[in-house]
Write a protein that binds this DNA or RNA. Structure first.
Lengths: 343, 343
DNA sequence: GTTAGCACTCGAAAGCTAAGAGTGCTAATC
DNA sequence: GATTAGCACTCTTAGCTTTCGAGTGCTAAC
């Protein structure tokens, strides 16, 4: 499948016009937006050739052309001009996420928000997963007479906390002992290893402390489990209502899919380059046949940790969104690395 | 405006039929669902009387009747049978919120989720506001070489944390000093008093420590500010798509309103009984003219602290939803009271 | 006071027409 | 041989008319 220079220009023009206007583009209108002069008949011939190659499709016989999934793919891979992010865009993004830079979950939630408001699509982000990390430290703080908070930090840059109850009054002394024991036994252990079973054996090695510490140990096991799972922040689902190409029913299906963290995370975790675009069926999800997904992964402390993504109709402003998302995922990674003192 | 017994029964039947089916109800169909035998003509006469009183309206001349806002109001205030929550419902609700009972924000987020999934409407909840409370304690924990977490607990049952950076290495000794100073100066102070200005004067009183503690003090001020504001959890917006009485545009407007925490909180905070129903214009919000809002407030440690609410079309299954919401808000209040050791 | 009967109203659905945008093909042109 | 003007053809969309039926309000009889 070889494309002549003219065909490339025409394909690019069709895609760009369709992205901008959202309506099938005909030979006549297209003529005007080309930077060389040919008649509409010539354009028509080329367009029907592009149709034969499967890059354009007609919604019906007497309508203009619309890019096919394959057409978008060619456009993104070799036709699209990558437009670097502008100064104003950068400032806007910074101003929106900086205020939340003190907490991983808040930060990623803020990122999903700003991504949704900027793109007018549905946006998703995942908090860093501690999966590959080891426990850096466990902290214990008293929060009331009989409650305390356990905070678990991993080398992957996650930090999870949880409040738990004891059935006896806590004192600084007791907590100090707990603290020492926990860190002795757990520092350096991979988070994934800290299963309830592991805690059982650990408890066994504690002798008479085991009883007293049982609620503490359970809380630690909970935070460890939570450190592995990344949280999913979803935002701007409503934006999808703006696109007439989606029917009400279809929107429901898309949002239902997005609301299911397990499925979503598996889509966002597909190995590939840091930034990936799934057009229509490429995602392999029946709910997304008419949508595109742009995923950009971020790293914390040099290690891949999570992702941000947008989901919208196939006719997205890929060029703008890709550059913005690259900037965002980069910022997030840097902020979290700094926040966790991992640089 | 006096209603005869028969009129009361007819009004109730219209409301219930419309709630169940969603279509204007005519005299003939209504006849069948009444527990006494009269002809459709009689029903018609009564219905036109109810229309004259403003309790029913006709979408157009040749259609059945639909309850007006006033009609719903009469129904809820004096016609509706209050159905107590069933055992299965209670079990379902419990099973959904118990797993998140260890953290106020997670809990209320979970409540909004379960409320949305149970009712099939949009659901909202607010985390407890610390507004009327005083600082119970401030905790400090080291999270890495140069970062620490401050945790602020109030008597209103809120707990907020924040990580902050120092530009020197932290040690247990330093933190101990900070801790002592903070609790000496801040314990018992109303959260609302802890403004940046207050922190300024506090810093002044610290002498040479002021410089070292500046980032700590800022973090404390941040957590105090956050303790006052209650967080809003929104869930199930998409459910509104299921109701044909809402147009796409209207749904957008409703969701936009719900996404604006300030406006929403002011609606949820209207003083009144613990459970309130706003039908249509009663909310005073132009976005909600065709919707009803049910708000149920919960208390922590005996003090009003936050609210849960659902937003849906006027034709809600009020009876079921009200009993479920009363149970939920009660559970939430108890759980938080226990979690915060405030009983 | 209640009911049967009936003319009337009005919206929703179905069918029809005209307009218009866009195509593909053919034949003339460069 | 590529390009273009011209034209017949296709197919959707919008607007209009017609039909159908559910439901009403009124009247007169019970």
């Amino acid at each position: 499948m070889e494309l002549s220079e003219r065909q490339r220009k025409i394909l690019a023009a069709v895609v760009e016009s369709y992205i901008a206007v959202g309506e099938p583009v005909g030979s006549k209108t297209l003529c005007d937006s080309l930077d060389f002069r040919v008649s509409s008949a010539t354009v028509r011939n080329e367009m029907s050739e592009l149709s034969r190659m499967g890059l354009l499709v007609q919604p019906h016989t007497s309508a203009g052309r619309v890019p096919s999934q394959k057409g978008y793919r060619v456009y993104i891979d070799s036709l699209m001009k990558r437009r670097p992010i502008s100064r104003t865009e950068r400032q806007y993004l910074d101003s929106m996420i900086l205020p939340a830079a003190y907490d991983p979950e808040k930060l990623l939630d803020g990122v999903a928000k700003v991504l949704a408001s900027m793109t007018k699509y549905a946006a998703v982000s995942t908090t860093p997963s501690g999966e590959g990390g080891v426990i850096r430290a466990v902290q214990l703080v008293q929060t009331s007479r009989r409650t305390a908070m356990v905070i678990l930090m991993t080398s992957a840059g996650t930090m999870k906390s949880r409040v738990f109850h004891c059935d006896f009054d806590l004192t600084p002394e007791i907590l100090r002992v707990f603290f020492r024991l926990l860190n002795e036994k757990l520092a350096g252990v991979p988070v994934t290893a800290v299963t309830p079973a592991y805690m059982q054996t650990l408890a066994a090695s504690l002798g008479d402390m085991a009883m007293m510490m049982s609620s503490t140990l359970m809380a630690v096991a909970d935070t460890a489990r939570e450190s592995i799972h990344s949280e999913v922040c979803l935002n701007g689902e409503v934006n999808l209502l703006c696109y007439p190409e989606f029917g009400q029913e279809e929107i429901r299906r898309i949002i239902d899919f997005l609301s299911c963290p397990a499925e979503l995370v598996s889509l966002l975790s597909r190995r590939g380059s840091a930034l990936q675009v799934f057009i229509g069926r490429e995602s392999g999800r029946p709910e997304l046949v008419d949508s595109s997904v742009i995923v950009s992964r971020y790293a914390v402390g040099g290690k891949d940790a999570g992702a941000i993504a947008v989901v919208g109709p196939m006719r997205m402003d890929y060029s703008k969104i890709i550059s913005n998302m690259e900037y965002l995922s980069d910022s997030v990674g840097r902020m979290l690395t700094e926040l966790m003192d991992l640089e």
